[in-house]
Design a protein around this nucleic acid. Structure first.
Lengths: 144, 144
DNA sequence: ATTTTAATTGAGAATGATTACTATTTAGTA
DNA sequence: TACTAAATAGTAATCATTCTCAATTAAAAT
């Protein structure tokens, strides 16, 4: 888990540097996304902001998430069922371990991924830009 | 690339064994999906069947793909932009290398994935069921 | 501190991929 | 050949996401 305040400041600065306005709604969304370890969905972010911003539009959350993503400050995780979840705490590609029962997502430590990427590049002739690695299973809190 | 005829026969047999009827439409869909190396989308399968079945419904392709998937004979690859592509030639989890320009998908050989899965299980306490590993980049046929 | 202006917002409509529905057709069995 | 449950075609419904547009507002200029 990267320091929340640091991530918050970086994202706010990036918005300013690119000429975007700092609105209360954006601050609210970024507060949640920069500090969240749980890889929240847009709906979850929206729900968490209902107390502070009762009249906030769901579209605003979508727009803000899209903006942060386009600035490279959030990682989007799309799943086969169509759901999307986001990580603005560690916005660079990294592996995930996902519980198929409760939806929990954790970030494991893996050593050998960099070697693998080079191996792939050599074998296929591709210029590799990014990657995605997810493991699906059942966590120790859920009945298997 | 697994032998086309073998995959075709296996999928047809699985349908029969589970009490599903063998219709011309299903044969058409399976013919394409069992032999295709290009990981086609539902739309692509539908287009390729237009000559043989001009009145076929897109819904039928969706239903057939869903059925094959539920029988474990097709792998679904969902992407962040919402598109889905399928592999019924190699229906078990395996890595992909995807060109972000032209959409080409190829299957590289990777050695160390099994070790990695065990490492993850030990570290997180998860019972790992499946995984997904994709590399995104630009292929040697596309201008970079 | 006001004014100005372009960006942002809220609310709801539009979109697009997928699934559900229903009357009709058909595969597989006797 | 007839029977019956399953499958199909065509279309409507769904649902997450994006778009539209009038009203609001952040931030720069005065």
């Amino acid at each position: 888990m990267v320091d929340y305040q640091e991530r918050f400041d970086i994202i706010i600065k990036k918005l300013k540097d690119n000429g975007h306005k700092i609105t209360p709604q954006r601050i609210g969304v970024i507060k949640i996304m920069a500090g969240s370890e749980g890889h929240p969905s847009v709906e979850k972010v929206y729900e968490q902001l209902q107390n502070e911003f009762p009249t906030m539009s769901l579209a605003t959350v979508y727009r803000t998430v899209l903006l942060i993503k386009s600035l490279g400050e959030a990682l989007e995780l799309g799943f086969p069922d169509g759901s999307n979840r986001y990580d603005a705490n560690k916005p660079y590609p990294h592996p995930h371990v996902i519980c198929v029962k409760c939806g929990k997502i954790i970030d494991p430590d893996i050593s050998s991924l960099q070697d693998m990427q080079q191996e792939i590049a050599d074998e296929t002739g591709f210029k590799i830009l990014t990657h995605r690695l997810d493991f699906f299973g059942i966590c120790s809190d859920c009945p298997s």
